[in-house]
Each structure stands twice: as C-alpha cells, then as structure tokens.
Simulated scan of single mutants.
Amino acid sequence: MAYKSLLTVAASPNEVLGTVTAAARIALTMDAHLDALALGVDRTQVGYSYVGSGAVVIAAAMDRAENEARETEAALNAAIGAQTPALRSAVESLVTQLGALTDVVASRARYSDLVVLPLPYGKDRGVEDEALTEAALFEGMAPVLIIPPAGMRTPEPKRIILAWNQSREALVAARRAMPFLKRADSVQIVVVDPPTHGPERSDPGGLLCQYLVRHGVRAEVSILAKTLPRVSEVLARHIRDTDADLLVMGAYGHSRFREAILGGATRDMLEHSEIPVFLAH
C-alpha cells in the first residue's frame, strides 16, 4: 500500500523548498509521481472599486497575479531541480481569482492520493494558504500532509501519534494514513480524557488498535489526562515527550466557522505544530 500520485500547490514562492523536498522524498520512497501547481491569485473585489475604475483595477490585479504565478512557478522548478533526477514530476501554473481558488485546487486534489502543503498559518502566509488547505480537504476529498517550516525528518516516519476521539474524521484519517502507519516502527493511538459514556467507554481506542494491528501496524493505545487547558496542548507535549515524527488527526470536527471563531484542535495544531501533520476529513 502506497501513495502513487502526490500534489503540492503553492500560491507564493515562500517556503517552497521545504514542502517540495518533503513531497519529493515521499514520492521517491513510494515510487510515486509528484505534480506541482503554481497559483497566481487575484485578490481584488471589483464590486468595491470606484465607478469607471473597474477595468483598470482588473488589469492591474491580473498583471500582479500573472507575475506571482511566474515567480512561484520558477521557485517550484528550482526546488524540484534541487531533488534527485530520479523524481518523476510535472509543474503547471495558473492564474485564478480568490473566489475560484477552491474549484481549481479541488479539481486537482480529487485525483491525488496525498496533497502536501506548507503550514497555512504564520506571518508570511495569506488567506489563500488556508483556502488551499480547506479546498483540498473538503471539496478535493484528499488527505493533506502539512509540512512545518522545519521540514520533514524522514519520508517514512518511524514514530507516529494518531489522535483518536471516536469521530468519523479521525477514522477517515487513520484509514488514509495507512501507507505511513504500516511503515512505522510504532504508532500510538492517543486518547485524551476519554468520555465515561459511549461505545468505547470500557476500552478507548481498542477497536481501532485491533483494526490497525490486523493490517500489520505496530499499534498501541495511550490514554492521557487533560492536564492542560486545550487538547492540542496535551498532544503537543506528548509529541515532544515521545519525539514523534508525524501526527495523524481528523480535520475540523466542528464547522469551519466555529473552528475559526472559537478555535479547535485542528487549528491549534496547525498554528503551532513542530512536526508534519496528516489531516483528513
């Protein structure tokens, strides 16, 4: 079991090398093809411009977006050129309006086994970076591997933390991450403050562990108390304590609006994670 078609998307030339390097190493390890998409994004809202200035605004915005697409494509080509010649890859560039970005990304992500993207939050990231991640996850229906600025230690993570809360999203993430899980030396199914009521109250994570073991995964269950205010903080501390290489988790168990306003484990982990995060919805 392996990923055979990988996709990475960039809307700016920033932090391209680390993401492409991680994607390329995974592609080489799993004998996969890597597609890279460079986007120039038109962020204007012509409806708010002065009367008669619409054409000028559109022309200037498109020129800027086309320049960004060329710069990003050049950065992607340079990053791919820095990899081994054995890598099978292709680079494409497009210009799109911000409102159409979701459809553009989703149309590519649907035919990819794994989408590799940079951390969507940070001082150098824009609104389009979060939109890229959500487009691949929701409309593209693809698992997404988020690469932090520090990069990815190994294309075959040896110590994996699988965050488990009995949700549909967490189960989908576990299934989609199987190529990584089967190659790992250890997979910890981490349950934080399990509920006292529910189908798994007597054996939290037990059925998932059984399922993974039957697939040849070296899995075990770890039950953690919620000793910090947020679940994400408990997970982050456990990741540091175990020196984990990868976190697997379900994405956005609540509505995206609620996650954005109130926060949530997904957003918290993406904002502060020091290791790659595998997401699926």
Score class of each variant (00 low, 15 high):
residue 5 S to K: 10
residue 6 L to Y: 01
residue 11 A to P: 08
residue 12 S to I: 14
residue 13 P to F: 02
residue 14 N to C: 03
residue 18 G to V: 15
residue 18 G to H: 12
residue 21 T to I: 04
residue 23 A to W: 11
residue 23 A to Q: 15
residue 23 A to L: 15
residue 24 A to H: 14
residue 28 L to R: 15
residue 29 T to H: 10
residue 33 H to W: 14
residue 38 A to H: 11
residue 39 L to M: 05
residue 39 L to S: 02
residue 43 R to W: 14
residue 46 V to E: 10
residue 48 Y to Q: 11
residue 48 Y to P: 01
residue 50 Y to T: 11
residue 50 Y to K: 08
residue 51 V to G: 00
residue 52 G to I: 09
residue 53 S to M: 14
residue 55 A to G: 03
residue 55 A to T: 04
residue 56 V to M: 07
residue 59 A to I: 01
residue 60 A to I: 00
residue 62 M to I: 00
residue 65 A to T: 05
residue 68 E to H: 11
residue 68 E to C: 05
residue 71 E to G: 12
residue 72 T to F: 08
residue 77 N to M: 04
residue 82 A to P: 02
residue 84 T to W: 04
residue 84 T to E: 12
residue 86 A to S: 11
residue 91 V to D: 01
residue 92 E to L: 08
residue 96 T to L: 05
residue 96 T to S: 14
residue 97 Q to E: 13
residue 100 A to S: 13
residue 101 L to S: 12
residue 101 L to T: 01
residue 104 V to D: 09
residue 107 S to E: 14
residue 107 S to F: 07
residue 108 R to V: 01
residue 110 R to C: 11
residue 112 S to K: 12
residue 116 V to I: 15
residue 120 P to A: 02
residue 120 P to S: 06
residue 121 Y to G: 03
residue 122 G to C: 05
residue 126 G to T: 12
residue 126 G to Q: 03
residue 127 V to S: 13
residue 128 E to R: 02
residue 130 E to N: 11
residue 130 E to M: 07
residue 131 A to S: 10
residue 132 L to A: 08
residue 133 T to D: 00
residue 133 T to G: 10
residue 134 E to V: 05
residue 135 A to Y: 02
residue 138 F to Q: 01
residue 139 E to Y: 04
residue 141 M to G: 04
residue 143 P to W: 01
residue 144 V to Y: 06
residue 146 I to A: 04
residue 147 I to Y: 09
residue 150 A to Q: 12
residue 150 A to T: 12
residue 151 G to E: 09
residue 152 M to N: 06
residue 156 E to Y: 06
residue 156 E to N: 10
residue 165 N to C: 01
residue 166 Q to P: 03
residue 168 R to I: 08
residue 169 E to Q: 09
residue 170 A to T: 01
residue 174 A to T: 09
residue 176 R to N: 14
residue 177 A to M: 15
residue 179 P to K: 10
residue 180 F to I: 00
residue 183 R to P: 02
residue 183 R to K: 15
residue 186 S to Y: 08
residue 188 Q to L: 10
residue 188 Q to R: 13
residue 189 I to S: 14
residue 190 V to S: 12
residue 191 V to C: 10
residue 193 D to F: 06
residue 195 P to W: 05
residue 201 R to T: 05
residue 201 R to V: 04
residue 202 S to W: 15
residue 204 P to Q: 11
residue 206 G to F: 10
residue 206 G to E: 08
residue 213 V to P: 06
residue 213 V to D: 10
residue 217 V to A: 03
residue 219 A to C: 01
residue 225 A to I: 03
residue 227 T to E: 05
residue 228 L to I: 11
residue 228 L to R: 14
residue 231 V to A: 15
residue 232 S to R: 08
residue 233 E to A: 13
residue 233 E to P: 02
residue 236 A to V: 00
residue 238 H to G: 11
residue 239 I to F: 12
residue 239 I to S: 08
residue 242 T to K: 13
residue 243 D to F: 11
residue 244 A to V: 09
residue 247 L to K: 10
residue 248 V to K: 06
residue 250 G to P: 13
residue 254 H to I: 10
residue 255 S to R: 07
residue 255 S to G: 08
residue 255 S to M: 07
residue 260 A to E: 13
residue 261 I to V: 15
residue 262 L to Y: 14
residue 262 L to M: 15
residue 267 R to G: 04
residue 270 L to N: 14
residue 272 H to L: 12
residue 275 I to S: 07
residue 281 H to N: 07
residue 281 H to T: 06
